[in-house]
Simulated scan of single mutants.
Amino acid sequence: MSVKQRNNVQIWGDGPATMILAHGFGCDQSMWRYLAPSFEDHFKIITFDLVGSGGSDLKAYDRLKYGTLHGYADDLLEIINKFSAGPVVFVGHSVSSIIGLLATVKAPDRFIAQVMVSPSPCYINDGDYVGGFTRPEIDEILETMESNYLGWSSNIAPVIMGAPQQPELSTELANSFCRNDPSIAEHFAQVTFLSDHRSDLPKSITPALILQCSDDVIAPREVGEFMHRQMPHSVLRIIKNVGHCPHMSAAGDSFDAMHGFLLQTVR
C-alpha cells in the first residue's frame, strides 16, 4: 500500500517550509481544524492519521511494529521523506509529541523546529519525577478499557478534554474514541501509558516549544518543567486552560504561543 493510503495523508497550504501535524491517542487529524488553517498561508501543511486511528489503513496495524513508539516515528519519517523536500516544523499532540521527538533524534537534519502540545515522556510517577499517575492507577485504566471500552470512552473524554464551557468538544472526543477499533485502541493505550522516554529528551537537538495547559490531569505542569530542564533547546509556555487539548479548546492562545516561537526559530 502507498504511504498516503496507509496514513490517510492530506496536504494543502503554500510555503517554503512544511508543517506536519500529528494527533494524540484516540483522535484523528480532524482535531487540527481549529489551528492548522492559521498557518496555511506560510507553510505547506501535512496532516495524517496514525496507523490504527481515523482514516488510516487498519490492515497496516502491526502489533510488533507498533509495540513501541519507534514504529510510529519511522512512519512519520517516511511521510516526511515522501512529501516534504524542505525543512519541517513538526507539531505533535500528547503521545505524538514524543513520536516526533524520537523522529528528531533519528533524523535531526529533517527538522527545524518541534512543537510539543501537552506532552509527557512518562505518565507514571517515579521517585522525584511527577508523571501524574501511579502504576496501579495506569493498570486500572487499562483494565477498564479492556472490560468496557465504550463506557471508558464516554467517561474519560470529559476528563481529557476539560473545557467545561465547551461540552461539545468532550462529545466529539468521546465519539472519536468510540470510532476506533477497541483492540487496537487498547494496545495503543498500553504502548502510550507504559512508555518511558525521559532518557531520549536530551538527545533531541531540534528547537522545541513545550506547550502545556495550566490545569491538565493527564500531563501536569511538573511534566513540562521536567522536560524543559532535560531539553537544552526548549522553551516552555503555559497557557491558561483546563484540559489536555489546547489546540481545540484554546486554539487562539495555542496559535499565539506557536507563532511567537516560530518567529524566533524559523528563518
Results as ranks from 00 to 15, higher is better:
2 S>V: 05
3 V>D: 04
4 K>F: 06
9 V>A: 10
10 Q>S: 13
15 G>K: 00
25 F>Y: 14
26 G>Y: 02
30 S>V: 14
30 S>C: 01
31 M>G: 10
32 W>E: 08
33 R>M: 12
34 Y>Q: 13
34 Y>R: 11
35 L>H: 06
38 S>T: 01
40 E>V: 01
40 E>G: 01
43 F>E: 06
45 I>N: 05
47 T>W: 01
47 T>S: 13
47 T>Q: 05
48 F>Q: 06
49 D>M: 11
52 G>C: 10
52 G>S: 10
52 G>Q: 06
53 S>C: 15
54 G>W: 01
55 G>A: 10
60 A>P: 09
64 L>V: 15
67 G>Y: 11
71 G>A: 11
75 D>F: 09
75 D>R: 11
79 I>D: 10
80 I>D: 10
81 N>G: 15
81 N>M: 13
83 F>W: 12
84 S>R: 03
85 A>V: 07
87 P>N: 15
89 V>Y: 00
90 F>W: 07
92 G>T: 06
92 G>H: 14
93 H>A: 05
94 S>P: 12
97 S>M: 07
100 G>A: 10
101 L>H: 09
102 L>F: 08
103 A>W: 04
103 A>S: 14
106 K>D: 15
109 D>L: 12
110 R>L: 15
112 I>L: 14
114 Q>D: 12
114 Q>P: 08
116 M>R: 11
116 M>E: 13
120 S>Y: 08
124 I>V: 15
125 N>P: 05
126 D>T: 02
129 Y>S: 04
129 Y>L: 05
130 V>F: 07
131 G>R: 00
132 G>A: 09
133 F>Q: 05
133 F>P: 01
135 R>V: 05
137 E>I: 01
138 I>L: 07
139 D>R: 06
139 D>M: 09
141 I>D: 09
147 S>F: 04
150 L>P: 00
150 L>W: 03
151 G>A: 09
153 S>T: 03
154 S>N: 12
155 N>Y: 06
158 P>Y: 05
161 M>F: 01
162 G>D: 07
162 G>T: 01
166 Q>D: 12
168 E>Y: 12
168 E>R: 06
169 L>H: 13
178 C>G: 08
179 R>W: 03
180 N>F: 00
183 S>R: 14
183 S>H: 12
185 A>Q: 12
188 F>Q: 13
188 F>A: 15
189 A>Y: 02
190 Q>H: 14
193 F>E: 02
194 L>P: 09
194 L>W: 11
197 H>D: 10
199 S>K: 14
200 D>E: 15
201 L>K: 11
202 P>Q: 13
202 P>L: 11
205 I>Y: 12
209 L>W: 02
209 L>V: 04
211 L>W: 03
212 Q>L: 10
212 Q>V: 14
216 D>V: 01
220 P>S: 08
225 E>C: 07
225 E>P: 00
228 H>L: 09
229 R>F: 00
229 R>S: 13
230 Q>F: 01
234 S>T: 07
237 R>Y: 02
237 R>S: 10
239 I>R: 08
239 I>S: 04
241 N>W: 02
241 N>D: 09
242 V>S: 07
244 H>S: 03
250 A>P: 02
251 A>L: 01
253 D>R: 09
254 S>Q: 06
254 S>G: 08
260 G>I: 00
261 F>Y: 07
262 L>V: 09
264 Q>Y: 03
266 V>S: 05
266 V>M: 04
